[in-house]
Design a binder for these strands. Sequence first.
DNA 1: AATGAATGAGCATTCATTCAT
DNA 2: CATGAATGAATGCTCATTCAT
Lengths: 227, 227, 227, 227
Amino acid sequence: MQDSAVIEFSQEKQGPRWKRRKDARPQELISAALSLFGEFGYSQTRLDDVAAKAGISKGTVYLYFASKQDLFEAVIRERAAPWIEAIRSREDNTNQSTEVVLREFLDWGWQQFLESKLYLIARIVLAESNNFPHLAETYLREVMGPVHEQLTRVLNRGVERGEVRGEVTRERIKVLLAPLSWLALWRQALKTHGSAPIDEQVYVREAIDMAVRSVILPGEGAPQPGA
Amino acid sequence: MQDSAVIEFSQEKQGPRWKRRKDARPQELISAALSLFGEFGYSQTRLDDVAAKAGISKGTVYLYFASKQDLFEAVIRERAAPWIEAIRSREDNTNQSTEVVLREFLDWGWQQFLESKLYLIARIVLAESNNFPHLAETYLREVMGPVHEQLTRVLNRGVERGEVRGEVTRERIKVLLAPLSWLALWRQALKTHGSAPIDEQVYVREAIDMAVRSVILPGEGAPQPGA
Amino acid sequence: MQDSAVIEFSQEKQGPRWKRRKDARPQELISAALSLFGEFGYSQTRLDDVAAKAGISKGTVYLYFASKQDLFEAVIRERAAPWIEAIRSREDNTNQSTEVVLREFLDWGWQQFLESKLYLIARIVLAESNNFPHLAETYLREVMGPVHEQLTRVLNRGVERGEVRGEVTRERIKVLLAPLSWLALWRQALKTHGSAPIDEQVYVREAIDMAVRSVILPGEGAPQPGA
Amino acid sequence: MQDSAVIEFSQEKQGPRWKRRKDARPQELISAALSLFGEFGYSQTRLDDVAAKAGISKGTVYLYFASKQDLFEAVIRERAAPWIEAIRSREDNTNQSTEVVLREFLDWGWQQFLESKLYLIARIVLAESNNFPHLAETYLREVMGPVHEQLTRVLNRGVERGEVRGEVTRERIKVLLAPLSWLALWRQALKTHGSAPIDEQVYVREAIDMAVRSVILPGEGAPQPGA
DNA sequence: AATGAATGAGCATTCATTCAT
DNA sequence: CATGAATGAATGCTCATTCAT
């Protein structure tokens, strides 16, 4: 992140006296932009509104970001970075059965995803994938890639242990993650415009159950849920 | 002078500046618009380009559609109508086991979805759901609703027959359909921008297998695939 | 008028069988155009609407008039011609006192003006006088000119007879006519948008009285009204 | 090369591309708009031209006025306000005879009208009265209303004093003012397009004389002019 | 650093005019 | 003759970007 060094530095220097500082501006802008891009999409979001939401004037945006597109990409990087870091540094508890590890991973992953607000990003990246091809590519590689790798690792270990069925293909991985990915994309729209809004907790539980049931071989130590 | 000869020659070949195609125009426009909206989204698609793609001039668009938004909605209606009709009029073969019916329904449904080009629509509706709230609502109700109903019916019959596990909740239905829905949204982006594009046929097979494995109770007549 | 010969000819030929004929089209168009130009002004009147009001299609307008402007000018000519003819051919009853002649002339002139619908024309010509300078010029010369001449003649005779006060200047003539001219311009707006609409008959009587009182010398044969 | 020298020289002299003139802009715009609306009417005036005349670019107009119509109404308000204020706050010299008061009022009123440039407004309001009905209504009520009231007061006082003839009706008031109103509407067109332009001073004197002669009863203290 | 006035390219929409039928 | 589909220049308005203050 281009500004992280600056931010850290200023935080050290100012200590407890936390006031709105010019060093905080990029974060505030990114935050405002995330909110508006996430709600209205890239084109329909005016820089005027982003500036207003960040409490600064229009021209000031250009002191921190070279263009609307630059801001957009900064938003994505900013949200993706901690997520990528979290995913990459996660260590599964290998003492547990694969089922438990799988459940914990998906549950934890979903929490991370929500907290990182990446569900907002996902929708825009998808929407704008033809206008900003490299963003879609980056998103798929940087954001989705690590999850795939982790999940692949979990399942391959399960295969070795005889707890997981069949072969671990890229397609299967994507299918297992799809219910949560789908929810990420639609949750805002479902909340606001769905005639019969779904219970998100129930949905997530079902999504994880489904993943488990479709790959975990029936065993004795970890009985299938809902059976 | 050779130049004038060339010009005259070309003029002879040019024919009329335009033809009247009153009946064909709306379809051509809708088709062009679907393609461009689907590719670039609503805002980034200029009516100029739609007209050019349809082989007509800008003003002509307004002979058939009152506004850009009107055209947009016509595109959606046009694609959704046959799909809705197809889904509603489908009759499952109730002689078959629930697993077979389920597989056939999902497979058939995906084919219909592809043919109707609704995967293009889905992405725009999702992207613009906050700018055109009623479209998202309509899409969820009119396009997704019928599939949910059909799938719910299939599974409820399976529950009665003792072939399907547990309770058929709205959330479970959505989870079962999510892998295909997710593919619908991402397939264009995956094709163009995915670093390691997936094999769509494999993915769809996995998606259906996953649905089956997660709801069908193990029985004798219909052994679990991939087991 | 360019079409009058044609019209007369066709009328003779067709006799009683009066049907909508192509020869009547110019008149119908002019009539429709007068109504719409008079209501909305030149720019705000669309040729589409004129055609629709005349019961023909848009393209047909161009069979009779070379352009919108041409139609506009035809409308004015069409309305002005009978008025000019009427004014020019009027013979005052020189047996009467100047007051009576003046009253009769103004009363008669106002009736003619109303019947010719020139009050609709006047407003547009005034409004568009900078966009169509020659129209304003023509209007002032052809439409207003003859009235001035007639009125000047009446008053000059009155001066000779010792019935009219002072000198008959161009300015005085215009002032005498102004109240009726003003009413012509505003009557539509006053009817529709005036908070307290005036009584037109009363106004016209006052306008004529005012003219009389301000130029007729008190005499014995024709006592001042309202005195 | 001499060319580059010239260019550099001119660049040095050019100064900044624009200046910020926040406070002056609205007035400049209103002034430019008044001039163009007054000349060409509402529809035929392009915002581009207004901007150019005000020495700014098109987009800047929208920093100060929400729309063309908004600018139009601002122009009218801006011109009408001082006039209304002037009329309302006028105190007649009640020591004078009604004739003198009447003459002074009309003469003063015409000066005010000229200075306020309301004659430009009047023509547009009349021209657009069907496209902007509320403007005509407002104009009649706010701009013409106060004059009618003042003039009515003057004449009623004259009636009480036995200096003014007959009854003071709304219609008579309008007739008395009509010559000046008419001049207001036509003066631009008469100047530019009139074949024999009138002498405005003479016209105004005649208009006032006519008003006086038609309502003031002959008395000893104030002999009728022109008699 | 911050502001916000000013810019101008861009786009949806209108409508007088043309022309294939 | 008549039609009305098609055209394309024109115009109001938007908004990302620049720059004087």
